[in-house]
Simulated assay, not measured.
Amino acid sequence: MSEALKALSDAGVSIWLDDLSRERLDSGNLEQLIKEQHVVGVTTNPTIFANALSKGEAYDQQVKGLAAAGKTTAEAIREITTTDVRNACDVFTDVYKATDGVDGRVSIEVEPGLAMDTDGTIDQAKELWATVDRPNVLIKIPATKPGLPAITAATAAGISVNVTLIFGLERYQGVMDAYFSGLEQAADAGIDLSTIRSVASFFVSRVDTEYDKRLDAIGSDEAKSLRSKAAIANARLAYAAYQEAFSSDRWKALEAKGAGVQRPLWASTGVKDPNLPDTLYVTELVVANTVNTMPEKTLNAVADHGEIAGDKVTGTADEAQQVMDRLTAVGISYDDVIDILEKEGVDKFDVSWGELEQTVTDALKAATSA
């Protein structure tokens, strides 16, 4: 076992893998990561499924069956992805039970095309929840404005939600409020709140990518000194907001009824800039009661040479705010950065979904003509 990953886990960070494939499931690789790399959960997205389906032959048998049954592309995607997620949930059953439902979680996302459709998101969240039919699945709902009431409605229905595509602090406040409202409605409906879990996926590396592009364009010494500081500062301020919300009287009333906290999840933790340490968004965001979901490349980097030096987040809010204030002072609008990142995030998943649809369409045609 990796000492660095053990130290990260011991520090209270749940290590989730940001990847899933039929090959990983069939080969036993996922079980190996659980046993040897402290992996206690998995996240997926359209990009991950598109990549998985485009490689190898692991899906061939299922695709042939779907083609023979006359399934549409949309139906085939649903069956293929929910099969992977259901099987992964089963692999994580022991982790789920050992952690009282906190970990052992596998996420599956509503279609990106529903990001601005509240009712469509609610309907698909309920459908995915029923189709996977495992208590340790998380349904990913984007933190767009139309996504917020969907988060509340899904939570109120007893569905465990992974809120994704969070970039900004104001929207994060809205996400936590949506979760609280959903729990309050669930309690009123007589649902056992201890059965509902949630994480809030706060994206990290993309924030630096957008800020650094703008800092490079400014080109001053002050701007250069601020490169690659925005993402970590933003995440640390998010953690401070989490601490405040989950120490409020409103939360304490829900906690007394058995509710579990909505943990911050650090997403997009693979480093985009090759000049940065490849473990940066892991080692600098160590703090208890959080999740860090990593692509395998980042997981391996942390295992190999990550230096875990304990809590790097608690008590850093003032320093983080100073960084964000300096970024504003050099002429970068925080709100503009966040708006662009959210739009790009939705667009990127839309593109990946289109690639997934094309891959499955081609596979169905090939299976039909074979």
Rank of each mutant, 00 (worst) to 15 (best):
E3T: 14
L5M: 08
L5Y: 09
L8F: 02
D10F: 00
D10E: 04
A11G: 05
L17W: 11
R22A: 12
E23M: 00
L25V: 12
S27N: 12
G28D: 08
E31C: 02
Q32P: 02
E36W: 01
N45F: 08
P46D: 05
T47S: 09
A50H: 01
N51V: 00
A52H: 09
L53M: 13
G56A: 00
E57G: 04
D60F: 09
V63Y: 09
K64V: 13
K64E: 15
G65D: 14
G65M: 07
A67E: 02
A69I: 01
G70N: 12
A74R: 09
T81N: 10
V85D: 12
N87V: 08
C89Y: 03
D94G: 00
V95L: 06
V95R: 06
T99C: 08
D100E: 15
G101H: 07
E109F: 00
E109I: 02
L114Q: 02
M116N: 12
T118I: 09
T118Q: 15
D119M: 12
D119L: 11
T121N: 00
D123G: 03
Q124W: 04
Q124D: 06
A125L: 05
A130D: 15
V132M: 08
D133I: 09
L138N: 01
L138T: 03
I139S: 02
P142E: 04
P146T: 03
P149C: 02
A153H: 04
A153G: 07
A156C: 03
A156M: 06
A157M: 05
A157R: 02
V161Q: 08
V161C: 08
N162W: 05
R171P: 07
D177V: 14
S181M: 13
A187R: 13
A187S: 15
S201K: 11
F203H: 11
S205M: 06
V207G: 03
E210Q: 13
D212W: 05
L215E: 01
A217M: 11
G219P: 02
A223D: 08
A223F: 05
S225H: 06
A230H: 04
A233C: 03
A240D: 15
A241F: 07
S248A: 03
R250A: 12
A253V: 08
K257R: 08
G260T: 11
L265T: 13
S268R: 04
K272H: 10
D273Q: 14
D273I: 09
L276C: 11
L276P: 07
V282T: 13
V286Q: 01
V287L: 04
T290D: 14
E296W: 05
K297A: 15
V302G: 07
V302E: 12
H305S: 14
G310S: 02
D311N: 07
A317N: 04
A320C: 13
Q321Y: 00
Q322S: 05
V323D: 04
T328S: 10
T328P: 00
Y334F: 13
D335N: 13
I338T: 11
D339T: 03
E342N: 11
G345A: 07
F349W: 12
F349I: 07
S352A: 06
W353I: 04
G354T: 14
L356A: 03
D362T: 10
